[in-house]
Simulated assay, not measured.
Amino acid sequence: MATAKPPQVDPAAALAEFAASSDLSATLEAYNPPHEGYRRLKAKLAEMGGYTPPPPVVQVPNGPTLKPGQKDGRVAALRERLGVGATASDGELYDDPLVEAVKAFQKEKGLKPTGLVGPATVSLLNDPGAAGETKAVELKPADIVANMERWRWLPRELGSLHVFVNIPDYQLAIVRDGKEVHRTRVIVGRVANQTPVFSETMTHIIVNPYWNVPVSILKKEMLGKIQETAGSYLDRGNYEVVVGKRVVSASEVDWANVNPNAVSVRQRPGGGNALGNIKFMFPNQHSVYLHDTSSRGLFSQTYRALSHGCVRVHEPFAFADALLAEEPGGLDGKQLKGMIGGGEKYLWLKRKLEVHLAYFTAFVGPDGKLESRADVYGHNARTKKLLGI
């Protein structure tokens, strides 16, 4: 999901600006994102010889599942799409050579190679980039263009001090005056629970946070276990139940018939809390934030799309140290760490800063090399489709 709010351009004002311009090229260039990441990608695109639109992909019409040996008017398009000539007198026959070509295509795209041409196969035949990638791929000019486009989704001013999370890179950076001052690993949302793409302002930090269990997680992942144990599953996990504004014992709730929307379940602060010891709040419509975790061993994995949507931060108190460098009063990570234990502690920031959750599968690293990351959520493929590239 992306709820980024790209800067809006007033068409009339833009036309007036171009009409009055003495340098149309410079005026047009000023409408591009001012960010260094965009400029570096643009330079790499130029090195690659620019972008040339590929020939259009032959479209295979939708229809009933096509099975080997059948005759169908769509077979001609299927042959053209896969480059398989007719070996029988009937060009509409789904014959063995074409079946084998379809199986090879299905295997390449991660589908079961059945030879049956159903909706999933037709979708990939008509839009080869539709599937999300699990491995980094060789970058093509179209990929660079799509990533340049996503720079347009960001605010033109990122903030003199800001946090930048690149979801497919599983990395977070703190940037001060255009220079990176801190970098660490993160864990982002699973494909089924994607971390959204957006920007918001960090306003406060909570030490010893409660974890308020989302209703979706309560329904899908917890309710069955609660019912099987008559509520003792919650006691073992250090959870408490709130009905109305009152904390009640888990055994008081009729879990077999309860409406999950009528109760709140939250995990108390302390050992085993899913949010760890600290979370960093930038209020947003998704209820997504940065936080510690009790499952710290997962940071050693290469593939880190493992959360329910929030962003887990490796070594969060070191992150806090860099984050609070400009906070009046000298608050730092060491002081926050000393607050561990007891109830929730809210710390409201005087020096607020912007947080950007972004999605770049291509970027230029500090060494000038073009980097590629897996399109884990499929956003890059969808961007290319929307751009017609």
Rank of each mutant, 00 (worst) to 15 (best):
L370M: 06
W348K: 07
R156F: 04
R176L: 15
G244W: 07
D292S: 11
T52E: 11
P283D: 12
Y359E: 09
R266E: 06
P328M: 11
P141F: 01
G224L: 09
A16H: 04
T195A: 06
L357V: 04
H379Q: 08
G237W: 13
A374S: 12
A88W: 00
D143L: 02
G329F: 15
M202W: 05
S89C: 00
H356V: 11
D127Q: 08
V99G: 02
Q227P: 07
E47V: 08
N212T: 14
G91A: 09
I389P: 01
P113V: 01
N32T: 12
V75N: 00
L349S: 12
T121D: 08
P214Y: 13
R40L: 10
M1P: 15
P11M: 08
V60M: 09
F299V: 07
K107A: 14
P128W: 05
G388V: 05
V207K: 08
P56G: 02
P316G: 13
V117A: 00
I167E: 15
T184F: 05
R351C: 03
Y94W: 08
L154I: 09
G231M: 09
D332I: 03
V122L: 13
Q301W: 08
F280P: 07
L218G: 04
T134A: 11
H182S: 07
A19K: 10
Q301Y: 07
I167H: 05
G343Y: 02
F198Q: 05
M339Q: 14
L111C: 06
T27F: 00
G129H: 06
G115R: 01
G132P: 10
R382D: 03
R40C: 05
D23E: 12
A250D: 05
V243T: 00
I144G: 00
R39M: 03
P68H: 09
L387R: 10
L290F: 14
F105C: 07
N259V: 07
P209L: 15
E327G: 01
M148V: 01
L218N: 05
W348Q: 09
E252L: 10
Q227D: 07
S251G: 07
P155I: 03
Y170F: 15
V258I: 14
L41A: 04
A88M: 03
G270L: 08
V242D: 02
G69W: 03
V58F: 08
A250Q: 09
K245T: 01
M1L: 14
I278K: 10
S22D: 14
K350R: 15
T184R: 06
D321I: 04
E133M: 01
D254P: 09
Q335H: 11
V58S: 05
H182L: 12
L116D: 12
N277A: 14
A2K: 11
K245S: 06
N273E: 09
S251P: 02
L24W: 10
G341W: 06
Q335K: 11
P97R: 03
V57F: 14
K384M: 10
L158E: 02
P155W: 04
L218Q: 08
E221P: 07
W153S: 04
L357F: 04
V243R: 07
G343M: 05
P11Y: 06
A274W: 05
F317Q: 10
V122Q: 06
G388C: 08
T195S: 14
E47M: 09
R156G: 04
L82H: 02
